[in-house]
């Protein structure tokens, strides 16, 4: 700490409070007894009990997890394949590939509201032509989310692939390996961290999305953001605060587990290299 000057320390505090004060306030009001969020009366845990009785919220959470799981998985498969295809080509061989890379990243630039609307149009057209999908279910929403998140997965995975030594793949091919073997035995194992983090990124993007979902949802697919948003009409109850608090706590616990595991692994590795 001594190395930090006072101004650095102050800006550090400012930066972190900017990031986390909203969450802290949300969490504080989760323990209030009042019927409305943002009003403090006295301490109570009743809103945490209320979560368990709020079936709508729980069903929506489960729906959101399902949609996010499917969409993250679909986009990780598509995104990784796209990254491998565009990054593994020998440089200069296909000029078109540079163009392709830009095209894949384009959905990041397109506003979500346009993505949502166009996917809705697409499904309406498909439905009038083939009679499928009969109902806008979970798969339709997941498909919509995948479209939006493939680009993010591609960005994550391809940046990790760019740092790989290309000669490994090239020498494997020289020794007679098929490209698919290169993909499964070299590309994927070397970039699995990026793939996993891409999966979680896509999961969170889908879990958090309101715009695309509100275009695409049909019966039985109200996602968590939609429920929270429509909750506002009747005045936000502290159930939402309590729910958010539980979520943040779970996230913090998971993140710390990962962090400490990495610390342990690093320590073990250091120990190993010291004995050598």
């Amino acid at each position: 700490m001594s190395s930090l000057s006072r101004t650095t320390f102050a800006s550090l505090i400012f930066g972190f409070s900017f990031l986390y004060l909203p969450l802290i306030f949300t969490a504080i009001f989760a323990f209030s007894d009042a019927e409305l969020a943002g009003v403090w009366t006295h301490f109570s845990l009743k809103w945490f009990k209320a979560i368990l009785n709020d079936e709508d919220l729980l069903i929506a959470t489960f729906t959101s997890i399902r949609i996010a799981g499917i969409s993250a998985t679909v986009s990780i498969i598509l995104g990784t394949l796209a990254a491998a295809a565009t990054m593994n080509t020998p440089r200069g061989k296909y000029d078109g590939y540079n163009f392709l890379k830009r095209i894949i990243l384009l959905p990041i630039m397109i506003p979500e509201i346009i993505t949502g609307f166009s996917i809705l149009m697409l499904f309406m057209v498909i439905e009038s032509m083939f009679g499928w999908p009969k109902e806008r279910g979970i798969l339709v929403v997941a498909a919509g989310h995948s479209v939006a998140s493939v680009a993010y997965v591609y960005a994550t995975v391809s940046s990790s692939l760019a740092s790989l030594d290309q000669s490994m793949g090239e020498s494997a091919i020289n020794l007679g390996a098929k490209p698919i073997h290169v993909f499964f035995h070299i590309t994927v194992p070397l970039s699995w961290r990026a793939i996993v983090s891409g999966w979680f990124l896509a999961f969170i993007l889908s879990f958090d999305d309101l715009v695309i979902a509100s275009f695409l949802t049909g019966p039985g697919t109200s996602t968590l953001p939609i429920v929270i948003f429509s909750n506002i009409r009747v005045g936000v109850t502290p159930t939402i605060n309590a729910f958010v608090t539980v979520f943040v706590v779970i996230t913090i616990i998971l993140a710390s587990i990962v962090y400490f595991r990495t610390l342990c692994l690093k320590g073990r590795r250091k120990g190993r290299s010291a004995t050598r």
Binding site: G137, P219, V227, N231, R233, V234
Partner: peptide, 15 residues
């Protein structure tokens, strides 16, 4: 979820 008799209701929250 799709099996069996269902009725799909679209309404306000909390009513």
């Amino acid at each position: 979820d799709y099996s069996g008799e269902v009725v799909n209701v679209y309404g306000w929250y909390g009513i």
